[in-house]
Computed example of a mutant assay.
Amino acid sequence: MSNVVETVTDFLMPILDEQNFELVEVEFVKEGKNWFLRVYIDKDGGIDIEECALVSERLSEKLDSADPDPIPQAYFLEVSSPGAERPLKKEADYEKAIGEYIHVSLYQAIDGEKIYQGFLQSVTPEELVLKIRIKTREKELVLERKNIAKARLAIQF
């Protein structure tokens, strides 16, 4: 499966570079009996449906004309924006998210909790600092990057 992701990424990057779009993520997953090739793209100011359609058409053409077929099984291709709750994966994602409200899931609990939400204060390769609210108090929480299972932008209610 990672081979599919790598191959698709290789086909995709020239298309995205030409349009000045950013690749957020490529995933190839089986849900039920169906396979899905999902491509998440973005750009400054956000991506629209016509831009997703353009990338979908161009990528589909490249994949269909490749020999041998890089994805021999049937699959659904979905090209979309990462949305308001965009995942934070690359270092640049974290840097761009400083000052933003984020959701973090941990591998190991801290103070009995594995999920935290708060404002990202700073980030280094080893840790990030979140400003969290516990009832009426604000507290800075230092999280080791190696303990972060997933992180994404979040909508604050």
Rank of each mutant, 00 (worst) to 15 (best):
residue 4 V to M: 07
residue 7 T to E: 14
residue 9 T to W: 08
residue 10 D to L: 14
residue 13 M to T: 13
residue 16 L to G: 03
residue 17 D to I: 04
residue 17 D to E: 13
residue 26 V to L: 07
residue 30 K to I: 10
residue 30 K to F: 11
residue 31 E to R: 12
residue 31 E to F: 14
residue 34 N to Q: 15
residue 40 Y to T: 02
residue 44 D to G: 10
residue 49 I to E: 04
residue 50 E to I: 13
residue 51 E to M: 10
residue 54 L to R: 14
residue 54 L to K: 14
residue 59 L to P: 05
residue 63 L to F: 05
residue 66 A to Y: 12
residue 66 A to E: 12
residue 69 D to F: 09
residue 69 D to S: 12
residue 70 P to R: 09
residue 70 P to Y: 03
residue 71 I to G: 02
residue 71 I to L: 05
residue 74 A to N: 12
residue 76 F to I: 15
residue 78 E to H: 10
residue 78 E to W: 12
residue 79 V to I: 01
residue 79 V to N: 06
residue 80 S to A: 10
residue 82 P to I: 01
residue 82 P to Q: 05
residue 82 P to C: 01
residue 83 G to S: 00
residue 83 G to T: 00
residue 83 G to N: 02
residue 84 A to I: 15
residue 86 R to D: 02
residue 91 E to N: 07
residue 93 D to L: 00
residue 94 Y to D: 01
residue 95 E to G: 04
residue 101 Y to K: 05
residue 101 Y to L: 03
residue 101 Y to W: 09
residue 104 V to H: 02
residue 107 Y to M: 07
residue 108 Q to W: 09
residue 108 Q to P: 03
residue 113 E to K: 15
residue 115 I to H: 13
residue 116 Y to C: 01
residue 120 L to E: 03
residue 123 V to M: 08
residue 124 T to I: 09
residue 125 P to L: 08
residue 126 E to H: 13
residue 129 V to H: 06
residue 130 L to T: 07
residue 146 K to G: 06
residue 150 K to Y: 11
residue 151 A to Q: 04
residue 154 A to W: 08
residue 154 A to R: 10
